[in-house]
Amino acid sequence: MQKDIFAQVDLPRVYRRRQLVNSVMLGLTGLFLVLAIIPLIWITVYVIIKGGHYINLDFFIHLPRPMGTSGGGVLQAIEGSFVMVIIASVIAIPPALLAAFYLVTAPNTPLATAVRFSTDLLAGIPSIVIGLFIYAIVVVTQKHYSALAGGIALSTIMLPVIIRSAEEMLKLVPRELREGALALGSPEWKAALRVMLPAAAEGILTGIMLSIARATGETAPLLFTALGNDNYEIGNMIRQGVRHHQSVLAILGQILDQPADALPLTLWKYAQQPYPERVQQAWAVALVLLLFVLTLNILARFWLSHRRRQLGE
């Protein structure tokens, strides 16, 4: 369209040059985007093809076989990831929500500024450093690696993610809801838990989903807290506990107290082994991990944007 105008009128060269620079540079930005998306497609497709080739039912329901033999699975890693993410959620979610409530009820106090700043710093600390810290406070005190230490390390990763998203979501709750509740004589905590929390629940849940996706993919903080354990099988631990007439608490203690494996940890160990069976399983683990993390992410973001549109943002 513009080209036709320029063809009819003999504009000075400088205008044509400006127009050229304009289209070249704008085209370049689009090209950059395409180039950036290539790795994503490359990784996803490659992992799906490679991993899909080696994945089977055994992979999900068996413990690893000795090195160099084929077959076996990564049940221990699936269970370990599950246990540690649950520990992390139990530890991280309550204080994160409370801190978020503080940030929205007292947004301009010095403490709120300090909390926001600390949250940002916490999110920026490399996860390997978090691993060192948890090693120093939990593993050194307990004198052994454990699923509990791994869970605590993951909770430290989840904490800032949840605080930030929960604060954002609670801020979106209309003031009138809280003020209405308070005006009707409800105490502050009831206004928060019974009125604001339900109103923001979906948004907060998506934040928690994102933080779980993040924690599930983390390896570095587990390297010297959970360490890894080829025989981590909850079913066996429970069966043995029942046989020895242990209490529920004792069995739970067992589950928390042992070193544990996790999917990314297994992937890391298997990827660098000389046995082709292990590398094949590493691809299968990568597939499971990638699908889990991306699905959680897509669901959470989709839900969020849907919700935002409902609220008319």
């Binding site: 998306i37 994503l40 990784i43 992992v47 590493a282 691809w283 992410n297 897509i298």
Partner: peptide, 17 residues
């Protein structure tokens, strides 16, 4: 979405690839 997914891929998966 795609740009954000790129940030969400776990770093071990990047490593393996």
């Amino acid at each position: 979405y795609m740009v954000e997914m790129l940030a969400a891929v776990p770093s071990v998966v990047y490593g393996l690839w």
